[in-house]
Design a protein around this nucleic acid. Sequence first.
DNA 1: TAGTAAGTTGACACTTTGGTCAGGTTTTGT
DNA 2: ACAAAACCTGACCAAAGTGTCAACTTACTA
Lengths: 210, 210
Amino acid sequence: MPREHKDPEEKIRERNIRLIIKAGIEIFSRKGYDGTRIAEIAEASGLPKANVYYYFSSKEQIYTAIIEHLLEGWDNALKYITADREPADAFRLYIRAKLDYTRKNIAESRLFASEIIQGARFLKKKDRQHIRDVTDKHVAVVEGWIAEGKILPVDPRHLFIMLWASTQFYADFEPIAADGLKKSRLKVEDYEMAAKTIAETVLRGVLPHA
Amino acid sequence: MPREHKDPEEKIRERNIRLIIKAGIEIFSRKGYDGTRIAEIAEASGLPKANVYYYFSSKEQIYTAIIEHLLEGWDNALKYITADREPADAFRLYIRAKLDYTRKNIAESRLFASEIIQGARFLKKKDRQHIRDVTDKHVAVVEGWIAEGKILPVDPRHLFIMLWASTQFYADFEPIAADGLKKSRLKVEDYEMAAKTIAETVLRGVLPHA
DNA sequence: TAGTAAGTTGACACTTTGGTCAGGTTTTGT
DNA sequence: ACAAAACCTGACCAAAGTGTCAACTTACTA
């Protein structure tokens, strides 16, 4: 067990932890929790295994640190659904931001997906609660729009699941998405086309008249 | 290595293989490939580990047998997109069938998702080709509908990804879907509501006038 | 610049795991 | 009933995995 350190802002410490987290994201995302070996994280981060254990007392601690870390980044893409925007703009921004974020953070996305598929074993209660709170807020906004007649009456929760699922898919299931698009790998243009298709379809699906 | 057997329809063999596959689906889906231990599959299937190895020569062989097995079942839900149907009916049937299949085969769905997230390491070339072929066929049908003016010009490939992603999500990411819906677990009604929302939204999104 | 805190690491202990095997029992065909 | 084929399994490896530790080096501080 590593000793308690005093914790001013240290240089070496920060750098090494960053390296470990970065390597961890990459490897956990490809191998899942159980499939990942600390030795591999050590190698990928350029540190000897024992040094990894100097900073983290267990595999689980590395993993949960990563989960914590990626949940922070998540929130940013989800801030576009606000009542003062027009629904069309809000959804378009949301879809683009989400696709952009997942494209630039594919490993994190997959790691999170892996964690959920395997039953959210290490996702803390407070983190799940946070996700629920954010969802509730967005749902309330959509319900407001429905009440104002700005969008058609559609179940907001299922609607968000649709958006989340559709945007997430390109990163999490890239091999299948690429096969479906007849590409060998996805490029930026594919993500742009995805944003366009999802936005157009969903907007026509929820906006009145049109 | 197990010897070659003559292979008439055997009773014991079939039963044991079925038990192993069944247990394997359950455990591989929860733990991923690397996280699964043969001993656990053995225990869950009620057979001693050595007996499992009597029927399968390696962990990988069990795993690929399962993948093969679930891809067969997959095709059935995907047969509803045919040119002689009206688009609205075809999409509705497709969405319902897909959600139904995933709901009744959650473990398989997750296993497949796990496999893809981890880079489709064991998905054979021919299986990927098969998926591509089926997609191509469906894409052609949708393109036909577009040419006839029966649906709006939308990228068929991204459209199918949207549908696949949305339907898949409820099974693969059940904890998150449940959180999003403010339920502790998903029930049949939730899947029905999902089908309704997805179908309504997408249909309004791709059908003309409406 | 001396002393202490922080960081580093090879080697090791212990456990788990995939896979093997030799010899046993049951089933099947004749 | 007999032999052959199919089936079963406890005991056993070698490899790989997690986590530990004592001794060493480097970095900071007064």
